[in-house]
Design a protein around this nucleic acid. Sequence first.
DNA 1: CCAAAAGTGTTGTTTTTACACCCATGA
DNA 2: TCATGGGTGTAAAAACAACACTTTTGG
Lengths: 263, 263
Amino acid sequence: MRLVYYLLMEESLEDFLERAQRDFLAHISLDCVVFGFHAGQLKILLLKMKHEDKRALPGGFVRKDETLEEAASRTLRERTGLENIFLQQFSVFSDPLRSDPDARPQSLVLAGVSPEKTGFFAQRFISVGFYALVEFSQVVPRPDVLSDTCDWYNLEERGPLILDHDQILAAALAALQAQLNYQPLGYNLLPRKFTLPELQKLYEAILGKKLDRRNFQRKIFSYGILRSLDEKRTGVAHKAPYLYSFDLRKYQKALKLGLQGGW
Amino acid sequence: MRLVYYLLMEESLEDFLERAQRDFLAHISLDCVVFGFHAGQLKILLLKMKHEDKRALPGGFVRKDETLEEAASRTLRERTGLENIFLQQFSVFSDPLRSDPDARPQSLVLAGVSPEKTGFFAQRFISVGFYALVEFSQVVPRPDVLSDTCDWYNLEERGPLILDHDQILAAALAALQAQLNYQPLGYNLLPRKFTLPELQKLYEAILGKKLDRRNFQRKIFSYGILRSLDEKRTGVAHKAPYLYSFDLRKYQKALKLGLQGGW
DNA sequence: CCAAAAGTGTTGTTTTTACACCCATGA
DNA sequence: TCATGGGTGTAAAAACAACACTTTTGG
């Protein structure tokens, strides 16, 4: 209401500028929902905070000379050891009450930081949510300075998360589902060589429902995005499935229009 | 690189906290792409800046006690006179070079502000993009304090926009297209009573292509989201078309699963 | 009365769904 | 050898795309 007044009354433009620094101050953070796929299950990478029972999404802050994407990439390089991680913004979380201004400072104090230095974390943060897709087996999880552990969790076994991270995770999952036909999810979550049943299980995990095997194969083939490898997965029980890899050029081209049809 | 060092070397946690306030400072703004629909055309609301030739998207800042959505809503209340505007975040724009730190302060100086007070606008802003849908005829455009005029423009006749606003607009259009089957675009862009040809023209404007009249009608009816009004649009040339309105309850329900099928 | 927009069905084609048997492998 | 998962095709149903004539109205 005050601002409306400033903007409508021309005389207050200078006042507005003076107050802006105080009235409009919010810090920006980012939180990443890192998805991996292993043994037919979607996994997410979570940190176990020091002196806290709850787990947290890997997150970070943006430096002056970085884009958000660069900051997220840097953060995830630290958490996973990987370069060039596939990243996608999906939402911004800006509830003024989303973070408890005492929680993080308290756990910092428990971690041995003097209380007067914890001010940074006591401020309001507006957080940009990213989801990231990584090849599970390539990741070497590394906790950050506020965490004890960094590990993969199944979605159902993740336990409670700090702050609004449950909400962020739910939004990431919804974004993942919505973008299945518009982003190369398979390319980024699976190893270079994979079998059709593996790809199908990935689709099933993302969509949360079973798909018909024959219809799935027909449809995937119809996109022309798979390169058949004349090679089979060996060492597994039962009939050896064929291996495939993505034809990235065709995959990208097909995604531009969106893979047609529903699942 | 410096940050990597801080986070990997435990001893620097306190240093990290001290520097964070300086290293991680970015201001948050928001920019709104306000869509309206009139005479078969998509329109956007743009401000003509004082002392600048280019036009700008309506934008604003977030107060301490607001969510981004509340801030956008407040901003658009000022620009349009409307309450409860339909708003949707679609992307965050964080290129460190996206804004010229001199441009806005210079035009403020031209507007009579003393140079030392323009510091707020010289800082780095990370901007959250929203698209808004309004009923064209309800809007009473009002310029803000930095602008001469606030008016509707056709997409093709908008002229050049400041900063990265062309990019923001392009992203908003892409989001609009992508969400056609998931958001009540028709409900928010059309008046309460409308004709099928009007609804079809809206779809055509958003998609940028012509649709077959009979197939369109069959498909729209099949969703069961329209209420037929036993009333015709009078006073227009040619055969009078029937009026319809949305059955909001059914529309919302249908959108949860997404309106099926492609356009 | 005529120009222009609106209403209305059918048909061929494509896409989707549902469904069952044989094969290869490791245990 | 057998239990388990992988490979493969067909038919019926649904969705989609293409297409033309008649009606109504204002000018």
